[in-house]
Simulated assay, not measured.
Amino acid sequence: MRSDRVRSVLYLPASNARAIEKARTLDCDVAVLDLEDAVAPEAKAAARAAAVEAVRGGGFGPRLGVRINGLDTDWGPDDLAAMKAAGATLVVAPKVETPEAVHALSAGLGKGCALWAMIETPRALMTLADIASADGALDGLMLGVNDLGKALGTGALGTGASADREPFKPWLAMLVAAARANGLLAIDGVFNRIDDADGLAAEAAQGRLYGFDGKSLIHPSQIAAAKAAFSPSDAEIVQARAVVAAFAQPEAGNQGAIRVDGAMVERLHLEQAKALLARAQG
């Protein structure tokens, strides 16, 4: 499993100068300046210039990424070239549907720049294994739930959405499996109802249960809940320490499984415990 801290991935419109400046002060793990959905067509060029200035200017506490427009749009190729020239270290690409798209995007990135591919169409779901295993700069997969819900016809992200994202469950599991099989980050989709704190907490907890590394966010008020959900809890830390301590005892010897607090624990659980403690310290 990747160790990168991507618990909270906040989207901010690159067309909003105040939002860019605010991003420098936020405690999210990753800030993504958006050139795609959050920017009107007539503002695309100005937003691109603002993103270039932000990347070059630096000063961001969180890791900084830029979501470009698709390469099949009028703005995408220029976005990609501008990010390479600016020295961007993370590019998020929307509506990636094929491994060939991963190759094309990777070829246009600067050295050392990571690529996150958004999975948000039915075709992408059908080619997900090929996308995830494509050679190139691919570093993470992101679930684009709004576009995916629209394309599938589920209506799953409206105000009357299923509280447990029932229509999305197969795709939640599939994306995490594809990411894990290829050493990639898995980042859950956005939660649209900004004022529904309980709903956000529940959905973030569900995302972690499915194995996601973090969650995409649309408002700074969502950062704390995402970081809490995707960080080890106090109870988990106590349990992990107990597992590590138990296997360190002489009587554990070379046993493959031992009893800890009334449960049988195998050495694979020891590896999980050590990984969890490492994340907690990070």
Rank of each mutant, 00 (worst) to 15 (best):
D37E: 04
Q281C: 09
M83R: 05
A19I: 12
D213R: 07
I258A: 04
G112I: 10
L33A: 01
A225G: 07
A114T: 09
G160R: 11
L175F: 12
L12T: 13
V244A: 08
T89P: 11
L10Q: 01
S233R: 05
R24H: 06
A137Y: 01
G70P: 08
M118N: 07
L276A: 07
R24M: 06
D27R: 02
K150Q: 14
A205Y: 01
H219Y: 05
G112D: 12
L10K: 02
E97I: 04
C113W: 01
G155C: 08
V190Y: 09
A117E: 03
L26N: 06
R193H: 15
R208W: 00
L175N: 12
E251F: 04
A132D: 03
A225I: 11
R48K: 02
E251R: 10
R18G: 13
K227T: 01
V52R: 07
A280P: 05
E236S: 05
R48I: 02
L184Y: 04
G199Q: 10
G108L: 00
A242T: 10
P122Q: 05
L277T: 09
L115F: 05
D139I: 10
H219V: 06
R48N: 03
I131A: 00
W75Q: 14
E53A: 14
I20C: 09
Q272Y: 15
I218F: 01
A163Q: 14
A204L: 00
A252H: 10
N254K: 13
D34W: 05
V265P: 04
E266W: 05
V6F: 03
M83N: 08
A278Q: 11
S133A: 13
S3E: 15
K150M: 14
A173F: 11
A54Y: 06
V96Q: 04
V190F: 03
A173K: 14
G136E: 05
L90S: 07
A156W: 04
Y210R: 12
P170A: 08
R18D: 13
I218P: 01
M1A: 15
V6S: 10
R24V: 10
T159H: 14
E271D: 15
V39F: 01
A101D: 14
E97V: 08
C113N: 07
R7Q: 09
T159D: 13
E21A: 14
Y210A: 14
E271F: 14
M174W: 12
I20P: 02
A204Q: 05
A240K: 05
F60C: 14
A51T: 11
R208D: 03
S216A: 10
A86G: 04
C113Y: 02
A49I: 08
V91Y: 06
V145A: 10
T127I: 06
G214F: 02
